[in-house]
Amino acid sequence: MIDHDTLVAFSKSYGLFYLMAMAITVVAYTFWPSNKERFEEAAKSIIDDEDMPCR
């Protein structure tokens, strides 16, 4: 039977590890060297004026 204490123990342990794993993944993705160019390109591309969709 799942009671309050079981749920608390689960969220306190699993919650901590999943948050840490999440943080590491995001930081790795953000600073991955091969992503640098793609990000800079994306930031610049919206400034260029264009008035028609690319088909």
Binding site: V26, Y29, T30, F31, F39, E40, I46, I47
Partner: peptide
């Protein structure tokens, strides 16, 4: 950025901030 005519200062920061 569009109105200022300048790309966002740090694209990486916008991603970290998002998550």
């Amino acid at each position: 950025p569009k109105r200022a005519g300048r790309p966002v200062f740090s694209y990486r920061m916008s991603i970290l901030g998002f998550w």
